[in-house]
């Protein structure tokens, strides 16, 4: 099997390496098993699709698998992970014609699909953490920081920063995520505009809800809990499903941040980041079109807009 070489995607994998090491310390064999199943099924699905059109398996599918595998609670049944990654690679990427042509982020499409289909199973799949997962109780219903905050409790901010809390396998270690974000921004792999806009959008929305004394508003620390930062750094910045114009990145990021906080605060789902990114992907093309039409001064009539584009085509 040959891989399509994609340096950008390799940088994302490098950025994910420390997070993977930390996840192995957190959950041990569970992390390894989840990753193994996801990689086998993800690469296999992509290979089946690429075989029919004589293409190569893209390295982007490795990033999709790597992100998808650590976005679930540690005790998620492996067959659910397999179903989700097959759905993600086949329906969100394969049928659109492979790498670079998908509209929605495949990892997020798979994650949202699983979270909608198996919500109850996942809510019981959180386990104790640390010590390579040895001796951790099976499928313990440990409360996640978001659930504790929703119930009015407090979570020490240090534990949130160090990721010492229950949650999805790799979403928790805030310091490593920030480190990865810096690496991705310095190497120009991820758009700093999207990361900044997403974090600002979420922070300002949460602050506004608190200032307005909305009863269901979560404390500011909630932005360090859940998968908000993980998604802002790794999922929102996927260059294929994000808008293409640079000014659109601000609007796109802000939309994701605002939607994520609104959904996790008000909706029936405990966390809103997957939906927020799918929502952002849905709006990406429209934002690009809006930016384009703002850049060009609007023309007086429909007949006027057709003529210049014709002459442009003629000169090329």
């Amino acid at each position: 099997m040959k891989f399509l070489k994609q340096p950008m995607m390799r940088k994302v994998l490098i950025a994910l390496a420390p997070i993977y090491l930390f996840s192995i310390w957190m959950y041990g064999l569970r992390t390894v098993a989840a990753a193994a199943v996801v990689f086998v099924f993800g690469i296999g699905t992509e290979w089946l699709f690429e075989r029919t059109r004589a293409g190569k398996v893209s390295e982007a599918v490795l990033v999709t698998c790597a992100l998808y595998a650590i976005a679930f609670p540690p005790a998620t049944p492996l067959w659910i992970l397999a179903v989700g990654i097959v759905f993600a690679v086949a329906m969100a990427k394969g049928v659109y014609g492979g790498f670079g042509r998908n509209i929605f982020n495949p990892a997020i499409a798979g994650r949202a699909f699983v979270y909608i289909s198996f919500a109850v199973v996942l809510s019981r799949a959180y386990t104790e953490f640390g010590n390579f997962g040895i001796g951790a109780a099976d499928a313990l219903s440990s409360a996640t920081p978001l659930a504790i905050m929703r119930a009015g409790g407090e979570v020490p901010i240090g534990r949130l920063l160090l990721g010492l809390r229950t949650g999805a396998i790799g979403e928790g270690m805030v310091l490593l995520i920030v480190l990865a974000a810096v690496y991705l921004m310095v190497t120009k792999t991820a758009s700093w505009r999207i990361i900044l806009a997403t974090v600002l959008g979420g922070t300002l929305t949460n602050a506004l809800l608190l200032v307005l004394r909305v009863p269901r508003a979560l404390p500011m620390e909630s932005l360090l809990a859940g998968s908000f930062l993980f998604m802002a750094v790794f999922m929102a910045t996927d260059p294929v499903s994000a808008p293409k114009r640079q000014p659109s990145h601000y609007a796109y990021g802000a939309l994701i941040g605002v939607t994520a906080v609104l959904i996790r605060t008000f909706s029936a789902f405990p966390e809103g980041t997957s939906f927020a990114i799918l929502f952002g992907n849905t709006f990406a093309s429209l934002i690009d079109i809006a930016v384009d039409s703002l850049k060009k001064p609007s023309r007086p009539s429909a007949g006027g807009s057709a003529a210049p584009s014709e002459t442009k085509g003629g000169t090329q």
Binding site: V95, Y96, R101, F113, G272, L278
Partner: peptide, 29 residues
């Protein structure tokens, strides 16, 4: 590059499915 059988309406319906999935997030709000 969309497979021949899915061109046009097929891929559009799949896309609408994903859009609907994004809107599911607002349920219960």
């Amino acid at each position: 590059a969309v497979p021949a059988g899915l061109k046009g309406t097929g891929i559009t319906l799949i896309t609408i499915g994903f859009m609907a999935m994004a809107f599911v997030g607002f349920s219960g709000m």
